Every structure is written in structure tokens, then in C-alpha cells.
Amino acid sequence: MRESAAERHDRLLELVREQGSARVSDLAGRLGVSPVTVRRDVEALAERGLLDRVHGSVSWPQSAAAAGGTGSSAGSGGPVLGLLAPSATYYFAEVIRGAHEAAAEAGARLILRISDYRPEQDRARTKGLLASGAEGLLIAPGWQGAGDQAAYGDWMAELPVPAVLLEREPAPGSALDDLDRVCSDHRHGVLLAVRHLVGLGHGAPLLVARADSPTALAVRAGYDEALGALGLEQPRPVIGSVPAELDRGRFEEAVRAVQEAVVSGGVTAALVHNDVDAIHLVQRLAELGVRVPEDLALVAYDDEVAALADTPLTAVAPPKRQVGRHGTRLLVERLGTEPRGLEPGRHLALLPRLHVRASCGAGALP
């Protein structure tokens, strides 16, 4: 795979930080690119205040060296914070927005790297953030499966700067369990949905959910816990959901399974993760003669676009922006604590809310 400009910039910054200064020609050889490319990269990085240029060579900024090599944000004197996120769209757009707001309020500079849900790239992306001068890190690893932490996560326990995990809960007792973290309590979110549907007179709802992200896995686990807490029996096995645009055949299988569960009379309510899948599901069910909410009361999970459906969807809304805000505030507080290591670590769980709309048949709350 061809190296991106951002990845090359990260490597260039790391080389200069390690050496203190370097000639452009030497950097070209180390990076395996032309001197013209390096000069262009250096100009871009110098404009951002990440490097100093001096007669054919570059050096680590004097402002960063004076601050102990941390690269404080120009003019503000505040800390530089690095944020690693698996995506800048959908769910994590709000997390990033909250982090940016809190960083600005604290006089800090926020640097962003995106992993595109490739957990094998998380470490390299984080090294890039450190090379850019990050003094503390907000990390939402690109984990998708249950084994990704063990395969790609142990390095985070050895980070040289304070770090806060966002929307990720490591395995209990693992090295990463000692890190600060701020997460949405998805189990509580599922309980809100199940309790709401049962309160409307339905039996235990059917769960239609993905299995390709930590949120999806937490929703599945929360479903089992919610049924147990409310003394309910699972009406059908969980129906695995996949995006319609990625695998139309498997999506159709899921739709037909929901249709059969409703037509047979055994199911009158469902919880669907996520919003986009729920909208596609409702549209396809209507084509098959199953109406929401008349035949099936439905609650979506995520509340990104649920309100925009033809029949606005009741949805569980994780506090995404607040996760970013609280994580950033915690990190800034960590950076300002001297001596470090004396304050206890924190695991902060933020509670989702249920936004009631037309799809569950209850009508919107006043």
C-alpha cells in the first residue's frame, strides 16, 4: 500500500525529533523519496510550526526544545493534545467535536489522526502524534473484533505520556485496564430501550445488531443483561445485522428473519443497532408488508440519523460529544498534576439517553 503524505510527515518528524536537526538530502535518503518531495513536506510542516528551516537543513523547533521537547501550541502556552480516532464521520464526529471544544476552552491545541478502523495502524498513528509534539493522548483504538485488543493494544500500556481511552473498555485485569478512560455506558442504554418497550406492553424485544465494533459487542452484552435484570426470556436468537450496501444478500436474510418473527406472532418489538441499518430495515419491511410501528415497535441505537427516517425512530443516544469533552478535560487535568502518578486513575461511564419518537408507537414525550 502506498504511503500517504500524512504517514510520511509522521516519519519525517520522528527522524528530526530523534536527531535534533537533519539535512534535507539526508532525510530524502532515509525516507526513500526525492529531495523535492522532502522540501515540499518541510515547507508544509514549518508553516504549521512543527519544524524550523535553516539553509538546506531542518531542526526541531526551539520552542519545543525549551519546553522539554513537547512542542507547545504556538502563542497559547497551552498543551498539545493528540487524538487518535477510528473515523471522523458518523459516531466519532461528535466525539471529536466535543474534544475540540474542550481543548479550545483549556487553551490547548488538538492534533487529530484517523486509523480508518485498522487497528494494526494505531501504533504508527500514535507515534505520529508524539512526533508532532503531543504531550498527552486521547485514544479510541480502531478495534473491531473481540481479539483486537490482545493483538494490537498492549503497546498503549507503555506510552511515555498520559493517555485517556475513549469509548473503549479493555479486558478486566489487562495492562490497559489501568489507563484512564471515558466511555458511554451502552449496557445502560440497552436497558433504557428494553424497559421502554416492555413498559408499552410488549414482550422482550428482538435484537438486530452488528458484531463489528466495540459498541456493537457492548449492545449485545447489554441485551443479555437487560433481559436478566427485567426477568425476561429472549424471544429469538440475535439476528446479525450487516450494512445493506456491503452485503445485500446477508442484509436480506436479516430482514426476512425479522419478518418471519413478526408474522409468526412471537415478536412485536425490536432493538436495532445502528441507525442506518434500522432505516434500511424499516424500508424493506414496509415493502414486505410489515409496518412500523403498527406491526413492530422499533428502537434504534446510536441516534445519529434516526430522527430523519420517514417514520422518525425512537433511539438510544450515547453521550458522544460529552465523551470527547470529559476525556479532554481529564487529560488536561492529568497534564497539570504535579507530581504525576499520585492521583488515582478514573474510569468514567456516561449514561446514554432515550429519545422517544414515532417508531415505538408511544408518540414523542413533551
Rank of each mutant, 00 (worst) to 15 (best):
residue 277 D to P: 01
residue 304 E to P: 01
residue 265 G to E: 09
residue 261 A to W: 00
residue 327 G to K: 03
residue 317 A to F: 01
residue 309 A to D: 11
residue 279 I to L: 12
residue 311 T to L: 09
residue 280 H to V: 07
residue 305 V to M: 08
residue 264 S to N: 12
residue 261 A to Y: 00
residue 259 Q to F: 05
residue 306 A to G: 12
residue 265 G to P: 09
residue 304 E to T: 10
residue 330 L to G: 04
residue 277 D to C: 11
residue 293 P to W: 05
residue 302 D to A: 13
residue 285 L to A: 10
residue 336 G to R: 14
residue 270 A to H: 08
residue 280 H to L: 09
residue 334 R to P: 03
residue 306 A to L: 08
residue 271 L to P: 06
residue 315 A to I: 07
residue 289 G to E: 07
residue 310 D to T: 15
residue 334 R to V: 05
residue 270 A to D: 04
residue 324 G to Y: 03
residue 290 V to P: 07
residue 292 V to S: 04
residue 295 D to Q: 11
residue 337 T to I: 05
residue 279 I to R: 09
residue 298 L to S: 05
residue 271 L to F: 01
residue 290 V to C: 09
residue 311 T to I: 15
residue 309 A to E: 02
residue 340 R to N: 03
residue 329 R to I: 05
residue 324 G to F: 07
residue 316 V to Y: 00
residue 259 Q to W: 09
residue 308 L to K: 06
residue 320 K to H: 07
residue 335 L to C: 03
residue 275 D to C: 09
residue 279 I to A: 04
residue 273 H to Y: 14
residue 288 L to I: 12
residue 309 A to I: 04
residue 265 G to A: 10
residue 277 D to S: 13
residue 318 P to R: 05
residue 286 A to K: 14
residue 340 R to P: 13
residue 326 H to W: 01
residue 261 A to N: 08
residue 280 H to I: 00
residue 287 E to Y: 04
residue 265 G to D: 08
residue 337 T to K: 11
residue 315 A to R: 02
residue 284 R to S: 15
residue 329 R to E: 15
residue 306 A to D: 03
residue 296 L to A: 09
residue 321 R to Q: 13
residue 305 V to L: 11
residue 278 A to N: 03
residue 305 V to W: 03
residue 276 V to F: 01
residue 270 A to L: 06
residue 277 D to G: 15
residue 281 L to V: 09
residue 277 D to Q: 13
residue 283 Q to S: 14
residue 330 L to R: 15
residue 262 V to Q: 04
residue 331 L to W: 04
residue 329 R to G: 15
residue 318 P to V: 08
residue 297 A to K: 05
residue 264 S to T: 14
residue 293 P to H: 07
residue 261 A to K: 10
residue 331 L to S: 08
residue 300 A to T: 02
residue 288 L to D: 12
residue 268 T to H: 09
residue 326 H to R: 15
residue 320 K to P: 06
residue 275 D to A: 09
residue 308 L to Y: 13
residue 267 V to D: 04
residue 330 L to W: 01
residue 276 V to E: 12
residue 296 L to N: 06
residue 277 D to M: 03
residue 316 V to K: 00
residue 271 L to K: 00
residue 287 E to I: 03
residue 283 Q to N: 12
residue 337 T to F: 08
residue 291 R to G: 08
residue 329 R to V: 02
residue 272 V to F: 00
residue 319 P to H: 10
residue 324 G to R: 04
residue 262 V to P: 06
residue 334 R to E: 12
residue 335 L to E: 00
residue 275 D to P: 12
residue 279 I to V: 15
residue 301 Y to F: 15
residue 272 V to S: 05
residue 331 L to H: 06
residue 323 V to P: 04
residue 290 V to W: 03
residue 261 A to F: 01
residue 273 H to F: 12
residue 284 R to L: 05
residue 307 A to P: 00
residue 316 V to C: 05
